[in-house]
Simulated assay, not measured.
Amino acid sequence: MYAPTGKPIITTAHNTSSTSLHISWRPPHIETIHGEFLGYRIAYRPRDRGDEAFKEIYIRDPNVESHTIQNLETYTQYLVSLQVFNPEGPGPNTTVLIMTDEGGMYQLDS
Rank of each mutant, 00 (worst) to 15 (best):
M1S: 01
Y2I: 12
Y2H: 13
A3D: 00
P4Q: 07
G6P: 00
K7M: 15
K7D: 06
P8Q: 07
P8K: 11
I9K: 15
I10M: 05
I10R: 07
I10W: 06
T11G: 04
T11S: 12
T11Y: 04
T12Y: 07
T12A: 08
T12D: 07
T12M: 08
A13E: 02
H14M: 02
N15C: 03
N15M: 02
T16E: 10
S17V: 08
S17F: 10
T19Q: 08
S20L: 02
L21S: 09
L21F: 07
I23Q: 02
I23G: 06
W25P: 06
W25K: 09
R26P: 00
P28Q: 10
P28F: 07
P28T: 08
P28G: 07
P28E: 04
H29E: 09
I30W: 08
E31S: 14
T32G: 01
T32W: 03
I33G: 01
I33L: 01
G35I: 07
G35M: 10
E36G: 01
L38W: 02
G39P: 00
G39A: 04
Y40F: 15
Y40K: 01
R41H: 05
R41L: 12
A43M: 10
Y44A: 04
Y44N: 05
Y44M: 06
R45P: 01
R45N: 06
R47Y: 09
D48S: 02
D48H: 10
D48P: 00
R49T: 15
D51L: 15
E52T: 12
A53K: 06
K55G: 00
K55Q: 15
E56W: 12
Y58T: 07
I59Q: 03
I59S: 02
R60D: 02
P62Q: 02
V64E: 00
V64S: 00
E65W: 05
E65I: 12
E65N: 14
E65C: 07
H67C: 04
H67I: 11
I69C: 03
I69Y: 07
Q70R: 10
L72T: 06
E73D: 13
T74I: 15
Y75E: 11
Y75Q: 12
T76Q: 09
T76A: 04
Q77F: 15
Y78F: 14
L79E: 14
L79G: 04
V80T: 11
V80H: 04
S81G: 09
S81K: 08
S81W: 02
S81A: 14
V84G: 02
V84E: 01
F85T: 05
N86T: 02
P87R: 06
P87N: 04
G89W: 09
P90E: 14
P90F: 12
P90M: 08
G91W: 11
G91E: 02
P92S: 05
P92F: 11
T94D: 03
T95A: 05
V96G: 09
L97N: 09
L97M: 13
I98S: 10
M99H: 11
D101F: 12
D101K: 08
E102L: 01
E102D: 00
E102C: 03
G103Y: 05
G103R: 06
G103H: 09
G104E: 03
Q107L: 15
Q107C: 07
D109C: 03
D109Q: 11
D109T: 12
